[in-house]
Design a protein around this nucleic acid. Structure first.
Lengths: 203, 203
DNA sequence: GTGCATCGGTGCACGCCGTGCATCAAGTAC
DNA sequence: GTACTTGATGCACGGCGTGCACCGATGCAC
């Protein structure tokens, strides 16, 4: 899910171009604010033609959110890798924490872009769309994990679990607005939310 | 929440202008497909200047989805009107069914726009954004309904309940692709999903 | 009713967006 | 090496979204 198999120079260059544009978009958005970023500026920053930018991303929002999409994909990938003995919610919780707790560049980028989205309402629609796409991927993964689950339950499960994550992450980012985000608090919040879901929502 | 109090000719005319644009947008989208609708065409259809269109809606998508937004607002409004004795999920279920079962023009418009969105992926991002906005309204309504609930629970509840509704409505629209949508099936599906949520999600 | 202040509707201009098309050069297969 | 494939680029064009200035209808005070 990270960078599969770059065989052939062409494929490698395409990957590099895409990565350069994605990183340039994130860098500019963080430095100047999303509203001051244009497709042209992203392309210039990556030293690539404006037309080529649109060969890779259909809008500047998509380019900025590509980093967030990678994060969401990573969560689903980690979910698939969790032991089959774990329940769906437990596996998902651990998957999220694994991704958010990574102390490398990608991990910091994930947090950075999530904070960026909080401050830039214009990114919200597309981000929710990214989430919706990953819901489908998560639903597929849940189907593989369980034995003969009905479609209604799987979709309900994937969607509500992601929705809960959205709330928890939003609250976590809200409180850790500038300080280094305490991962322990995040773990507690996720556990709390998922326990509520598992135990029954209605009061 | 329908049409509050139109006192003053100016206010009435503004309301009329907005409604005319909203209905023109919906009509054109249904007739010609969302991709063939432009702001200019919507404005012409309503016999209003293009510039004025943008005084009311910031994009053609917003104009088309205004009908969907009205539906979501109506659900929250009906939710507030449900007896306080009902649990959150029960009240929300009845609220949704009240809105979807209305046999007037507005009711048919709500269903029509939901079906339109299913076929037009370009509308999805903004629609999810509309939903997110109504999640906040629902959270506020839940806070009023319950006694001293903590913020985390209220947001979790509002978000997951709406997410569940999204899944149920999507499945319902999927199966009733052209036939008159059977409301009884919808009731059963909503009841089923909310029962699962109330009983505990994890298997 | 008259005069004045307010405010919505409109036209204009401008920069950015997203895409079809033709072209060029680098990569690939033989 | 030769010919094919394909990504990068420039160009042009229609649509988008907005600031600005103007005008005429509305609302208000007298």
């Amino acid at each position: 899910m990270t960078t599969a198999a770059p065989d052939g120079r062409r494929e490698r260059k395409k990957l590099a171009t895409r990565a350069a544009l994605r990183q340039a978009a994130l860098r500019l958005a963080l430095r100047d604010g999303v509203e001051n970023v244009t497709a042209e500026r992203i392309a210039d920053e990556a030293d690539i033609a404006r037309r080529t930018f649109f060969n890779y991303f259909s809008s500047k929002e998509e380019a900025v959110l590509a980093t967030a999409a990678l994060g969401a994909e990573a969560v689903v990938a980690r979910f698939r890798a969790r032991p089959a003995a774990e329940s769906v919610l437990t596996a998902l919780r651990e998957a999220v924490l694994e991704v958010m707790d990574r102390d490398d560049v990608a991990g910091h980028e994930h947090v950075a872009v999530l904070r960026l989205i909080r401050r830039a309402p214009s990114l919200l629609p597309q981000q929710l769309s990214v989430l919706a796409a990953q819901e489908r991927a998560l639903a597929a993964a849940i189907t593989e994990r369980l034995d003969g689950p009905d479609d209604a339950y799987v979709r309900l499960c994937a969607t509500t679990a992601f929705a809960a994550l959205r709330v928890v992450l939003d609250r976590w980012l809200e409180r850790a607005d500038d300080a280094a985000p305490p991962i322990d608090v995040l773990r507690a919040e996720v556990t709390d939310a998922f326990t509520t879901l598992a135990g029954g929502l209605d009061r």
